[in-house]
Design a binder for these strands. Structure first.
Length: 478
RNA sequence: GGCCCCAUCGUCUAGCGGUCAGGACACCGCCCUCUCAAGGCGGAGGCGGGGGUUCAAUUCCCCCUGGGGUCACCA
């Protein structure tokens, strides 16, 4: 009864230790989808319990990333909620209280070894040997009261076994001999992940823990903690780890892990989100391009594959191109592209003009960053001529001079006007069309690969075209 | 190394005992064509190995191999 009435609640619990990681975005996505699928809640909780690795501003970046991807959350550090605060550093008293409770109930004990001693024990025994279990409780309490630095460790019941059920893999039985007496509360009063995570997940009503596979082997620790507290277990789902092309898990060493990097490269949030969805999940009908809403609609854990996928930049870029040319509206695309034009120092005159250019360029760039690079000549006369373009202008100089006369004489630059005129021009001289087009293309754009000539002439306009023709001809004379 | 997870084209995947093993990216060719793309059509490319179970294994079981994860007062 109580179990059935629990609203599905998921969370993403990132550590503010650096740039917002694509792995975090990936896990957040599945947490978000599962919560929405069930009409439940999605929480963001900041796990800032490692003072050494804390990075100023990282929390803000993470929250921005989630918003950028469209993964809105119901509770979080910046918006609050019924279980505030959502930063673990602001919940220290809670963890201490629960750790002490475990000491009293016999599920945990105080240990007084120094880091140096631990290092020595690790070398000799291969890990902590639980020696502080032998300290009589009264003595341990006395030492603690006297202010002796110490940690609180989980007293793993031994011998014994602990069963862990992963919803994606089934049940795994762990021999408790393999489960270490992990530190729950550090000597600085901060909790470790294990304690803080379990306490908060319980207090915040998290019903479904969706996290990276890196946590799979420490799940028995968490199961033991739930049992020690007498709390109901959540369901566990361990998502595969994203891998770099080499094979190892995606890391700063093996690839680009920062979502900010992808954003800067001109990847659309929709495309990144869609691509990440494909890492393990597939639509029943095999569709690869789909919205968040469509994913939520179709989502089923049965369709999640746990083999670790390689994060492939090539396919991400292809998908980004697909969004640019087929999914976004021209208006949306124009808005997305503006910051990149600005960054390149380009001015687009008017939205109407920008959209006309975009219409022509849409099938010809795959990242927003590419647009200013490939379409520069639409916005300024200040562009370079490719080496091959210069040659093309030289070869076609005679043709260009004659062509200039023709273009000048045209009443307008609509395709309906320019196309027959240029074709007739070529035919009269017995020239293949390309013998006319390539020099012209090179002269007015500085490159050999551009959108179709007639559309381009219309967009650029007569003045610009004639001006550039003159300039190109002068260029080769010099 | 111990323990744990995983295993279909190069990559992402569909498959849930009987399929010509399907799709997507990338690659190659053709078409379209003023260039380059986009688009359309076609091609090449895969069930890691060995045992079982079964009339029948990509599919179920076991072993091996391979890959990954984890063994902190980091998460």
């Amino acid at each position: 009864m109580a179990r059935m009435s629990r609203m599905v609640t998921t969370r993403i619990a990132p550590s503010p230790t650096g740039d917002p990681h694509v792995g975090t975005a990936y896990i957040a996505l599945f947490n978000y989808v599962w919560a929405r699928k069930n009409g439940g809640r999605f929480i963001v909780r900041i796990e800032d319990t490692d003072r050494a690795r804390y990075v100023e501003g990282a929390e803000k970046q993470i929250l921005n990333m989630l918003k950028w991807l469209g993964l809105d959350y119901d509770e979080g550090p910046d918006i609050g909620g019924p279980h505030a605060p959502y930063r673990q550093s602001e919940r220290l008293d809670l963890y201490k209280k629960y750790a002490e409770e475990l000491v009293r109930s016999g599920w945990a004990y105080r240990a007084f070894e120094t880091p140096e001693e631990l290092e020595k024990i690790r070398k000799e025994k291969g890990g902590y040997d639980g020696r502080a279990r032998n300290i009589p409780p009264e003595e341990a309490e006395a030492r603690a009261r006297a202010g002796e630095p110490h940690v609180i460790r989980l007293k793993v019941p031994r011998p014994g076994t602990t069963e862990v059920r992963d919803e994606l893999r089934g049940t795994v039985v762990y021999d408790n001999a393999e489960i270490p007496d992990v530190v729950l509360l550090k000597s600085d009063g901060y909790p470790t992940y294990h304690l803080a995570n379990v306490v908060d997940d319980h207090l915040m009503g998290v019903t479904d823990v969706i996290r990276g596979e890196e946590w799979l082997v420490s799940t028995p620790i968490h199961v033991l903690l739930y049992r020690a507290f007498g709390w109901e277990l959540p369901k566990f789902y361990h998502m595969p780890l994203l891998r770099a092309p080499g094979g190892a898990k995606l890391s700063k060493r093996t690839g680009h892990t920062s979502v900010d990097y992808y954003r800067e490269q001109g990847i659309l949030p929709e495309a990144l989100r869609n691509y990440l969805s494909l890492m393990g999940f597939s639509m029943p009908d095999g569709r690869e391009i789909f919205t968040l809403e469509e994913m939520i609609e179709a989502f089923d854990w049965k369709r999640v594959h746990v083999g670790a996928p390689v994060f492939d930049w090539e396919k991400l870029v292809w998908m980004n191109g697909k969004y640019i040319r087929e999914v976004l509206s021209l208006d949306e695309l124009a808005e997305r592209v503006k910051p990149f034009l600005e960054a390149a120092g380009l001015d687009w005159r008017s939205d109407a003009y920008l959209k006309k250019v975009l219409e022509l360029m849409r099938p010809r760039f795959e990242t927003l960053k590419e647009f200013p690079e490939k379409a520069r000549y639409f916005f300024t006369d200040d562009f370079d001529y490719e080496e091959k373009a210069v040659k093309e202008i030289q070869k076609g100089a005679e043709i260009l001079r004659e062509l200039k006369g023709l273009l000048e004489s045209l009443p307008d630059f609509r395709p309906a006007t320019t196309e027959p005129a240029i074709k007739a021009f070529a035919e009269e001289r017995g020239l293949k069309l390309r013998k006319v087009m390539q020099p012209l293309r090179a002269a007015i754009t500085g490159r050999l690969a551009t959108p179709g000539m007639y559309e381009m002439l219309e967009v650029l306009g007569k003045d610009t075209v004639l001006r550039r023709l003159d300039r190109a001809l002068k260029l080769i004379e010099a």
